[in-house]
Design a protein around this nucleic acid. Structure first.
Lengths: 83, 83
DNA sequence: CCTCATTTGTTCGTATGTATA
DNA sequence: TTATACATACGAACAAATGAG
Protein backbone atom coordinates (compact mmCIF):
# COMPACT_ATOMS: atom_id res chain seq x y z
CA UNK A 1 0.00 0.00 0.00
CA UNK A 2 1.26 3.43 -1.12
CA UNK A 3 2.48 5.77 1.59
CA UNK A 4 1.06 9.26 1.79
CA UNK A 5 2.34 11.54 4.49
CA UNK A 6 2.95 14.92 2.92
CA UNK A 7 1.40 18.12 4.24
CA UNK A 8 -1.13 18.25 1.43
CA UNK A 9 -4.62 16.73 1.56
CA UNK A 10 -4.72 13.08 0.57
CA UNK A 11 -6.91 13.64 -2.48
CA UNK A 12 -4.48 16.28 -3.78
CA UNK A 13 -1.50 13.99 -3.29
CA UNK A 14 -3.24 11.09 -5.00
CA UNK A 15 -4.32 13.28 -7.90
CA UNK A 16 -0.69 14.31 -8.30
CA UNK A 17 0.47 10.72 -8.39
CA UNK A 18 -2.14 9.79 -10.99
CA UNK A 19 -1.29 12.87 -13.06
CA UNK A 20 2.33 11.79 -13.09
CA UNK A 21 1.38 8.27 -14.16
CA UNK A 22 -0.56 9.66 -17.08
CA UNK A 23 2.32 11.95 -18.06
CA UNK A 24 4.92 9.18 -17.94
CA UNK A 25 2.78 6.70 -19.85
CA UNK A 26 1.99 4.35 -16.99
CA UNK A 27 -1.62 5.01 -17.94
CA UNK A 28 -1.52 5.54 -21.73
CA UNK A 29 -4.16 7.46 -23.70
CA UNK A 30 -7.51 5.63 -23.98
CA UNK A 31 -6.47 3.16 -21.30
CA UNK A 32 -8.56 2.64 -18.22
CA UNK A 33 -7.14 3.83 -14.93
CA UNK A 34 -7.73 1.76 -11.79
CA UNK A 35 -11.24 1.84 -10.37
CA UNK A 36 -12.07 3.87 -7.29
CA UNK A 37 -12.12 0.63 -5.34
CA UNK A 38 -8.66 -0.32 -6.62
CA UNK A 39 -7.31 3.14 -5.76
CA UNK A 40 -8.90 2.86 -2.34
CA UNK A 41 -6.96 -0.36 -1.76
CA UNK A 42 -3.72 0.93 -3.25
CA UNK A 43 -3.58 4.15 -1.27
CA UNK A 44 -5.33 2.98 1.85
CA UNK A 45 -7.95 5.71 1.77
CA UNK A 46 -11.71 5.74 1.62
CA UNK A 47 -13.43 5.29 -1.69
CA UNK A 48 -14.75 8.84 -1.52
CA UNK A 49 -11.23 10.21 -1.22
CA UNK A 50 -10.16 8.17 -4.25
CA UNK A 51 -13.16 9.50 -6.17
CA UNK A 52 -12.28 13.06 -5.19
CA UNK A 53 -8.73 12.57 -6.42
CA UNK A 54 -9.95 11.33 -9.79
CA UNK A 55 -12.42 14.20 -9.78
CA UNK A 56 -9.54 16.63 -10.03
CA UNK A 57 -8.27 14.91 -13.17
CA UNK A 58 -11.80 14.86 -14.56
CA UNK A 59 -11.96 18.58 -14.00
CA UNK A 60 -8.67 19.01 -15.82
CA UNK A 61 -10.07 16.83 -18.64
CA UNK A 62 -7.09 14.52 -18.27
CA UNK A 63 -9.51 11.62 -17.90
CA UNK A 64 -13.13 10.89 -18.71
CA UNK A 65 -15.48 8.90 -16.51
CA UNK A 66 -18.10 6.51 -17.83
CA UNK A 67 -20.66 5.24 -15.33
CA UNK A 68 -20.73 1.46 -15.28
CA UNK A 69 -17.48 1.13 -17.21
CA UNK A 70 -14.56 3.04 -15.77
CA UNK A 71 -12.39 6.11 -16.09
CA UNK A 72 -10.32 6.55 -19.24
CA UNK A 73 -7.24 8.61 -20.04
CA UNK A 74 -8.07 11.38 -22.52
CA UNK A 75 -6.37 11.81 -25.86
CA UNK A 76 -3.48 14.23 -25.52
CA UNK A 77 -4.29 17.61 -27.14
CA UNK A 78 -2.67 18.26 -30.51
CA UNK A 79 0.28 20.54 -29.88
CA UNK A 80 0.40 22.23 -33.30
CA UNK A 81 1.69 19.91 -35.98
CA UNK A 82 1.83 16.29 -34.91
CA UNK A 83 5.03 15.69 -36.85
CA UNK B 1 -41.42 -4.50 3.32
CA UNK B 2 -39.05 -5.53 6.11
CA UNK B 3 -38.27 -2.86 8.69
CA UNK B 4 -34.65 -2.09 9.42
CA UNK B 5 -33.94 0.52 12.04
CA UNK B 6 -31.17 -0.81 14.25
CA UNK B 7 -27.95 1.09 14.81
CA UNK B 8 -26.02 -1.18 12.47
CA UNK B 9 -25.49 -0.51 8.76
CA UNK B 10 -28.27 -1.80 6.53
CA UNK B 11 -26.05 -4.25 4.67
CA UNK B 12 -24.87 -5.75 7.96
CA UNK B 13 -28.42 -6.12 9.25
CA UNK B 14 -29.61 -7.71 6.03
CA UNK B 15 -26.66 -10.10 5.96
CA UNK B 16 -27.57 -11.12 9.50
CA UNK B 17 -31.18 -11.77 8.55
CA UNK B 18 -30.15 -13.89 5.56
CA UNK B 19 -27.61 -15.77 7.67
CA UNK B 20 -30.35 -16.62 10.15
CA UNK B 21 -32.63 -17.82 7.37
CA UNK B 22 -29.93 -20.15 6.15
CA UNK B 23 -29.29 -21.45 9.67
CA UNK B 24 -32.95 -22.11 10.40
CA UNK B 25 -33.62 -23.81 7.08
CA UNK B 26 -35.74 -21.10 5.50
CA UNK B 27 -33.18 -21.25 2.70
CA UNK B 28 -32.07 -24.91 2.63
CA UNK B 29 -28.74 -26.13 1.18
CA UNK B 30 -28.58 -25.94 -2.64
CA UNK B 31 -31.66 -23.73 -2.73
CA UNK B 32 -31.60 -20.35 -4.42
CA UNK B 33 -31.90 -17.31 -2.21
CA UNK B 34 -33.92 -14.32 -3.45
CA UNK B 35 -32.36 -12.25 -6.20
CA UNK B 36 -30.81 -8.89 -5.47
CA UNK B 37 -33.88 -7.29 -7.00
CA UNK B 38 -36.18 -9.29 -4.69
CA UNK B 39 -34.08 -8.37 -1.66
CA UNK B 40 -34.14 -4.75 -2.74
CA UNK B 41 -37.95 -4.87 -2.75
CA UNK B 42 -38.25 -6.83 0.49
CA UNK B 43 -35.95 -4.63 2.55
CA UNK B 44 -36.59 -1.34 0.84
CA UNK B 45 -32.95 -0.68 0.06
CA UNK B 46 -30.97 -0.05 -3.09
CA UNK B 47 -29.87 -2.97 -5.20
CA UNK B 48 -26.23 -2.23 -4.40
CA UNK B 49 -26.93 -2.50 -0.68
CA UNK B 50 -28.63 -5.86 -1.24
CA UNK B 51 -25.63 -7.02 -3.29
CA UNK B 52 -23.27 -5.90 -0.52
CA UNK B 53 -25.27 -7.85 2.06
CA UNK B 54 -25.08 -11.02 -0.03
CA UNK B 55 -21.40 -10.25 -0.59
CA UNK B 56 -20.79 -10.82 3.10
CA UNK B 57 -22.30 -14.30 2.88
CA UNK B 58 -20.30 -14.98 -0.27
CA UNK B 59 -17.18 -14.06 1.65
CA UNK B 60 -18.18 -16.43 4.42
CA UNK B 61 -18.79 -19.13 1.77
CA UNK B 62 -22.31 -19.57 3.10
CA UNK B 63 -23.59 -19.01 -0.43
CA UNK B 64 -22.21 -19.18 -3.96
CA UNK B 65 -23.09 -16.76 -6.73
CA UNK B 66 -23.55 -17.79 -10.34
CA UNK B 67 -23.77 -14.99 -12.89
CA UNK B 68 -26.92 -15.29 -14.96
CA UNK B 69 -28.53 -17.81 -12.61
CA UNK B 70 -28.64 -16.79 -8.98
CA UNK B 71 -27.10 -17.24 -5.57
CA UNK B 72 -27.22 -20.67 -3.95
CA UNK B 73 -26.90 -21.85 -0.36
CA UNK B 74 -23.69 -23.84 0.12
CA UNK B 75 -23.58 -27.40 1.40
CA UNK B 76 -23.04 -27.38 5.15
CA UNK B 77 -19.49 -28.53 6.02
CA UNK B 78 -19.19 -32.12 7.26
CA UNK B 79 -18.89 -31.99 11.03
CA UNK B 80 -17.07 -35.31 11.52
CA UNK B 81 -19.22 -38.35 10.79
CA UNK B 82 -22.42 -37.68 8.85
CA UNK B 83 -24.38 -40.00 11.12
C1' DC C 1 -28.47 -18.21 -34.95
C1' DC C 2 -30.72 -14.47 -32.76
C1' DT C 3 -33.45 -11.75 -29.42
C1' DC C 4 -35.26 -10.87 -24.98
C1' DA C 5 -35.53 -11.04 -19.94
C1' DT C 6 -33.22 -12.17 -15.75
C1' DT C 7 -29.33 -12.27 -12.73
C1' DT C 8 -24.75 -11.52 -10.68
C1' DG C 9 -21.20 -8.44 -10.18
C1' DT C 10 -18.83 -4.04 -11.05
C1' DT C 11 -18.29 0.93 -11.68
C1' DC C 12 -19.06 5.91 -11.61
C1' DG C 13 -20.90 9.85 -9.45
C1' DT C 14 -23.37 11.86 -5.71
C1' DA C 15 -25.50 12.64 -1.07
C1' DT C 16 -25.73 12.33 3.94
C1' DG C 17 -23.94 11.98 8.57
C1' DT C 18 -20.04 11.86 11.61
C1' DA C 19 -15.53 13.09 13.26
C1' DT C 20 -11.52 15.85 13.27
C1' DA C 21 -8.52 19.94 12.99
C1' DT D 1 -17.11 28.17 10.11
C1' DT D 2 -14.51 25.63 6.73
C1' DA D 3 -11.77 21.78 4.91
C1' DT D 4 -10.61 17.14 5.12
C1' DA D 5 -11.66 12.25 5.62
C1' DC D 6 -14.42 8.31 6.56
C1' DA D 7 -18.44 4.92 6.22
C1' DT D 8 -22.67 4.33 4.46
C1' DA D 9 -26.25 4.49 0.94
C1' DC D 10 -28.52 5.52 -3.41
C1' DG D 11 -29.27 5.69 -8.52
C1' DA D 12 -27.75 4.77 -13.10
C1' DA D 13 -25.25 2.26 -16.17
C1' DC D 14 -22.52 -1.55 -18.02
C1' DA D 15 -20.64 -6.46 -18.91
C1' DA D 16 -21.14 -11.30 -18.89
C1' DA D 17 -23.72 -15.32 -18.29
C1' DT D 18 -27.99 -17.93 -18.35
C1' DG D 19 -32.21 -19.58 -20.19
C1' DA D 20 -36.63 -19.13 -22.78
C1' DG D 21 -38.44 -18.97 -27.24
Amino acid sequence: MMDLDGPEPLYIQIAGILRRRIADGTYPPRSKIPSAEALRAEFGVSRVTAVNAVGILLNEKLVQGVVGKGTYVSEPPETSGED
